[in-house]
């Protein structure tokens, strides 16, 4: 499985660390809504098909990527840097 890092190009999956469901929304830091916090920490989308995920290129440039990957075929259809000011590109 290869993931194309916007900085480093196509790299083997072994260089990346999976950071899970990218759909989760962290509540505001001072939020007292415990349900929202619990959902954020524990409850995950787990679709059979395309999944929005966060990966870190931990064995490379260490940036975090927003990846769309199919959980049935492992095909990666998009990988962009998470940090907004990169606009998805380095």
């Amino acid at each position: 499985m290869l993931i194309t890092c916007p900085y480093c190009g196509p790299r083997d999956v072994s260089e990346f660390t999976y950071q899970g469901d990218g759909n989760r929304q962290r509540p505001a830091p001072n939020s007292q809504n415990l349900d929202a916090w619990n959902e954020y920490v524990y409850d995950r989308l787990n679709p059979a098909g395309d999944h929005n995920e966060i990966w870190q290129h931990s064995g490379g440039c260490r940036i975090h990527l927003r990846v769309v990957r199919n959980t049935l075929t492992h095909a990666v259809s998009s990988a962009v840097a998470v940090r907004g000011h990169h606009g998805g590109k380095p």
């Binding site: 950071q19 870190q56 975090h64 940090r83 907004g84 000011h85």
Partner: peptide, 13 residues
């Protein structure tokens, strides 16, 4: 290290 990087990039860019 990974914890800090995650928060800096994903949560508090």
């Amino acid at each position: 290290m990974q914890h800090l990087e995650y928060f800096l990039e994903v949560i508090w860019p």
